[in-house]
Each structure stands twice: as C-alpha cells, then as structure tokens.
Design a protein around this nucleic acid. Structure first.
Lengths: 152, 152
DNA sequence: CTCCTTAAAGAGTTTTTTGTCCAAATTATA
DNA sequence: TATAATTTGGACAAAAAACTCTTTAAGGAG
C-alpha cells in the first residue's frame, strides 16, 4: 500500500541490527535467515545503506554490518528517503507532476493532512525506539519461520 | 507512495467521465487525450472497470464509456478494491503476511490509525463529489498539456 | 448491405523491480 | 603464509507492471 519491498527489507534489517549489541558486526546471512528474506538481494540493500552512511561494513572473519556511530537515532524517514527516493514525500496521490496547494488535483485537499500524518509518523520513529519495542518480545519483525536457532 | 499507476489512471478517468453528461458515452480516445495517458493501456483499464460493473461500454458510432446507473455514488475505495486488489486495506506496512493487533509488527500500533484515516478518506470520497470539485475549475485532473480544445 | 467507427480480446513488448550467481577483494586466524 | 569467511561488484535472470499492436466483433449511418 505504501512501501516497496526494498524499503520493507531495509527497515526490517535495520531494526534487527539495532537490536543486536552495538559494534559487533551482524552477518548478512544471519539477517536474511532471521527475516526470511533472499540473502543476495538483502546484501545489495545493505550495501546501499552503507554507501549512504547508515551502516558500516566489515569483510572477512568477524565481518558483517553495524549501525554507524549515532545512527541508532535515525528515523524511518531518513531510511525511506534513501530507499524510496528523495521525492518520497512529494508525490501527488494521482501521480500529477505538479500538485500543490495552488495547483491541486481533486484529492489534494483531503489527502494532504493524511500524508502529513504519514510523514510525521516516519519522522518520529527511530531505529532505537523500534529495536526496543522488538526486544520487549511483543512485536515480530518477520513472518512465521522465526527459526529461533540458539547461538550454538 | 500509495497507488499504482493503474489505479491513478482509473480514478482520473472515472472522475472525468463523471464530469460529462450522464448517459452520453465518452470515447476512450478522448479520455486518454484529456488525461495525457496512453490510450491502449487506458482501454484495458476501462474494460476491467466494465467487467466489474462500474462502467457501461458501447461499440460502434456513438460508442464509448458511461458510468453505470447509480455509480456516480461510488467511492474511491470501491474503485481501489478493483484496481489494487481485495486486500488493499489489509497489507502490513512491513509486508508481513500476518500482522494484526495480536500479532503485530513494530510499526503496527503507530501505522494503524494512519491507515484508518486513509481508508476513511477513500470511503468518503465519491466520484460525484470529485467531479463537482473538478467542475468548479479549481482543481486539475491531469498534467500540464490540458489541451483544452473546444468541442468544435 | 456496406462502410466506418468503436470497444473487446489476446498476444506481444518494454521497463522496472526483485532476485540470483559468480568472481574478485579483504580480513582474521591458524 | 595459507586458508576460510566475509563483503563487493557486476552481470545476469525472473517476475511484475506498464504499455503496444493487431485482429475481431458490434453498432450506427448512408
């Protein structure tokens, strides 16, 4: 209804990483398994988040991905502007190139406040907050096959 | 951000038809031109709306598309359930198959009220209302090349 | 009846999104 | 130093969405 699969995977992965001990790299493979998401595709998404400074990556043994210093405070909006593109917040619901208060589509007046609620929500939620919520155990990040294999 | 191009075209076309004299068929070609949308593609969309009873179609001279009797009162939600699919209102924002109050993703609690606003809005807006709004001249249905060629 | 105009139907094409595969490059550890 | 584990990068493949083309059926008007 609102987000591309790429954005969904990105948010899930970032929240998952944020639930893990900071500074300890998390393997792409483990994230993909945990989220039940295609690993090779997720790797591309994480690479992109690295390029944009949200994550740090490390190769070789003990490699993986960490949230970059300070990025626990990142909002979902920051993530979505990367994954959905910079005009995520600016699209007309009818797809018009220009649709503003002055030159509006017939839905604009009704849509605007709703859209603003979406934006406010995305600006308000941080990875930290969401990770905390997940750690309470009340919420789930992925579908059924949680496959909670212990660390062995 | 929310709607597929197919849905956008469908809504635009239906509103446009609703602004025209009822019972007088409107040509696909004219709609496509007016909305600046690919005609062959729009034809498929209109066919689909016919199959689902929103429109009537007529072939040959004086042919075209009309809103079916009573369908001026259709809501955008009725349209979207056809164009986006029946679970348009039920998707989890993170893409989880199951996400409800009991088994929720970490965004669910914040997303739910926003989603309900979207649904309420779509349930509230009818083609009739939107057509009236357009007829005031304050709103535009399509991008720049309105090509307001008089009826000749 | 014939011609022209229109939508219907179906196959096909293009573009975008999603997903895969494999050969480097990098790094810890034995 | 050799090896195994990991990300990186690029090409590739599959699926879905958007769009096109062509033929057929139907209807109105001369």
């Amino acid at each position: 209804m609102v987000l591309s699969r790429t954005s969904q995977y990105a948010i899930q992965a970032l929240i998952y990483i944020a639930t893990q001990a900071p500074g300890v790299p998390v393997l792409n493979r483990d994230i993909a398994e945990r989220l039940n998401v295609p690993a090779a595709y997720l790797a591309k998404i994480l690479q992109n988040l690295c390029k944009h400074g949200l994550l740090d990556s490390f190769r070789g043994r003990l490699g993986g991905f960490c949230l970059r210093e300070g990025m626990h405070k990142s909002t979902l909006m920051q993530v979505l502007l990367l994954t959905e593109g910079p005009d995520f917040t600016q699209n007309c619901i009818l797809g018009l190139k220009r649709c503003s208060d002055e030159t509006a589509c017939p839905l604009h007046l009704r849509w605007k406040p709703v859209k603003n609620k979406i934006i406010a929500m995305m600006n308000d939620m941080t990875l930290e907050d969401l990770a905390k919520a997940v750690l309470t155990g009340k919420y789930r990040l992925a579908d059924l096959p949680v496959a909670a294999m212990p660390a062995r």
